[in-house]
């Protein structure tokens, strides 16, 4: 139960109280059963779901820069004449922190 759109400060308190109380009193299913959270914790496709070969984003073309990335490690690597230590560690940390820069700009676009 919800209003049509988000409720702003023109919404009367007594009206939202009425919506709540009326729904609580009469919105009851005598034959309804809520799944216990512990036994059925998530909402996922049923096991017999068949995903077509073209389902979802499987057909998406290759991209120059992958999602979640600003500066690919391969580009950053050109800054270093030679990595003397653990290359995998260097790459992992670069990519983890680079992803934060990616998150910042996409959150700016989407959330703000």
């Amino acid at each position: 139960m919800d209003a049509s759109a988000i409720m702003q400060n023109d919404t009367r308190i007594e009206n939202l109280r009425a919506l709540t109380d009326f729904t609580r009193e009469y919105g009851v299913y005598s034959s309804g059963v809520s799944h216990p959270v512990a036994s059925n914790p998530d909402i996922t496709p049923s096991q017999d779901t068949v995903f077509r070969s073209d389902y979802g984003m499987s057909e998406n073309p290759n991209m120059k820069v992958k999602p979640g990335v600003c500066t690919p490690w391969e580009i950053k690597l050109e800054d270093f004449p030679k990595i003397t230590g653990d290359k995998d560690l260097a790459q992992r940390i670069w990519e983890d922190v680079d992803a934060l820069g990616n998150m910042f700009i996409w959150q700016c676009l989407l959330s703000f």
Binding site: M7, N9, T20
Partner: peptide, 27 residues
């Protein structure tokens, strides 16, 4: 449990109330 059951399009014990209250909260 009620909220998840309803979102599965199954029948919970009660209709869940999930109001999207924005600036109403300020008031």
């Amino acid at each position: 449990g009620r909220y998840l059951t309803a979102m599965r399009n199954e029948k919970p014990d009660k209709i869940p109330i999930r109001p999207f209250v924005a600036e109403f909260t300020a008031r």
